[in-house]
Design a protein around this nucleic acid. Structure first.
Length: 216
DNA sequence: CTAGAGATGGACT
DNA sequence: GTCCATCTCTAGG
């Protein structure tokens, strides 16, 4: 039995966008990002793995589950913006908002293949850490991706579609036949939803790790 | 290869 | 106080 997931109180009231509706949107919008190219300064990467995070009261794993806060405000904003959050006391992870303003959702950028600016990405990933970084590992995992791309706190809210330092380009969208889906990585709830999408066989896709509760 | 634990800060109960 | 949408290193098979 899981511990009470909501502090003894019911989740925030559902929006009109019910779980099944979000589910349909997630299965269109999130995988559509696969194969597209994200450019930030000198580094460009081809997105190979994403996860959808859903709406208040419907997705217990989402930062928006309990409603809007200063931290998750960007997820309630218009689509095409970056939601960058700080976690585990040392990592940043980046999401793109993809659904209409007010919905409260995002797509976590979990992994990518660096296709230009590899030297910059390598320098960033190697900084402070000893061992050599394999090319396929440059952006393999959400926190690594953020480092490789040079994304941090100051990029929260950045417009990824307008004139800015970040942009999502068409790239070559992954063919549907090469896209697989499954449970999300490292989440302690909402395990049943197959909202992780990745390009089958791509070496830059991160290994799936189930959530492990902290001890002591 | 797998399993376990430390790092480290902030959002939230 | 507790829990992280993680990463890296170490020990062991």
């Amino acid at each position: 039995m899981p511990v009470d997931e909501n502090g003894g109180r019911p989740p925030a009231a559902s929006t009109p966008l019910a779980r099944d509706f979000f589910d349909r949107l997630a299965h269109e919008v999130a995988p559509d990002l696969l194969g597209r190219v994200l450019v930030h300064g000198p580094v460009a990467l081809r997105i190979t793995e994403v996860e959808a995070y859903g709406v208040p009261g419907e997705d217990p794993a989402s930062h928006t589950y309990r409603g809007r806060t200063p931290r998750n405000a960007v997820m309630f904003g218009p689509p095409g913006h970056l939601y960058v959050y700080f976690t585990y006391g040392m990592h940043f992870c980046a999401n793109l908002t993809c659904l209409p303003e007010g919905v409260g959702s995002g797509v976590l950028l979990r992994a990518g293949e660096v296709i230009s600016g590899a030297e910059t990405a390598l320098a960033r990933r190697s900084a402070g850490s000893g061992r050599p970084v394999r090319e396929a590992d440059l952006a393999r995992g959400p926190a690594r991706l953020a480092v490789a791309l040079g994304l941090a706190r100051e990029h929260n809210g950045l417009d990824a579609c307008g004139p800015g330092s970040l942009s999502v380009t068409e790239g070559e969208p992954a063919k549907a036949a090469s896209i697989l889906s499954g449970p999300r990585t490292g989440v302690s709830s909402g395990k049943e939803t197959p909202w992780r999408f990745w390009i089958d066989g791509d070496p830059t896709v991160s290994p799936h790790r189930p959530h492990v509760p902290r001890r002591r």
